[in-house]
Design a protein around this nucleic acid. Structure first.
Length: 210
DNA sequence: AACCAGTGCAACCGCCGTCAG
DNA sequence: TCTGACGGCGGTTGCACTGGT
């Protein structure tokens, strides 16, 4: 992903890929505001976008839709995600339906980046614990065993709490929560390709003016 | 100030199910 | 029944950002 492959003047027939520009966002929003959602491939053409229907759909559903919620996943939402994931596994779209305003992509990313990390840490804890238990018979007077297994394990435990749906697992304090929350509450974004910075509020106000 | 590693997320890819012709 | 177009979904990638050194 990522490379702005095409300039607008050349390769007019080619499909654009990579980050969406503000102009493209506006075109898509304008079109949907006036005509509604429809067959995405023809929508993309009719809107004058050199994007695939899939790309337009994804952009609309995950980013441009007015009811998309961004920013902090609340503790309630975290618990819900955990519960639903334990029930349904990686059925992200199904899970997302129970979290109004959240997209499957957002939940999926959240799971992979935050929760799965903790699972890995927990597995590492267990692995180390098993190792320590298996070599735990060696004398602690031995230089190699100068640090007790328990103290080594506990250093891991400080960063990885048990994975049960427990509040220990989640950031416990408001400070932790805020630290964890991605700094997108205003969710301005920068597009490195053209240095445009815009927020959804900007886009929607522009769209309304249009 | 420069570099590097880790993190988070937007967007793409490929597969599968559905449906109309 | 077959086939192609399309939408939906989960997995993956790659880039921007951030914090540490």
């Amino acid at each position: 992903m990522g490379t702005e492959r095409l300039s607008s003047s050349q390769d007019d027939d080619e499909v654009r890929k990579g980050p969406w520009t503000m102009e493209e966002d506006l075109m898509l929003m304008n079109y949907i505001a006036n005509h509604g959602e429809g067959v995405w491939n023809s929508l993309a053409k009719a809107a004058g976008l050199k994007r695939t229907g899939k790309s337009c759909r994804l952009r609309w559903l995950n980013y441009l839709r007015p009811d998309v919620r961004r920013g902090n996943i609340t503790p309630e939402e975290q618990l819900l995600i955990m519960e639903l994931h334990s029930k349904w596994g990686n059925r992200w779209s199904k899970i997302a339906r129970h979290l109004p305003g959240r997209t499957d992509n957002e939940i999926k990313n959240y799971w992979r980046t935050r929760i799965q990390k903790h699972i890995k840490q927990q597995e590492e804890v267990e692995r180390v614990r098993d190792q320590m238990i298996s070599i735990g018979n060696c004398s602690e007077t031995n230089d190699d065993c100068a640090i007790s297994p328990c103290s080594q394990v506990s250093s891991f435990c400080n960063v990885a709490e048990p994975m049960e749906i427990s509040h220990d697992y989640f950031p416990s304090s408001q400070g932790d929560m805020e630290a964890m929350a991605y700094q997108h509450t205003t969710w301005d974004r920068g597009d490195g390709a053209n240095d445009n910075y815009w927020s959804m509020e900007d886009l929607w106000s522009m769209q309304l003016l249009d």
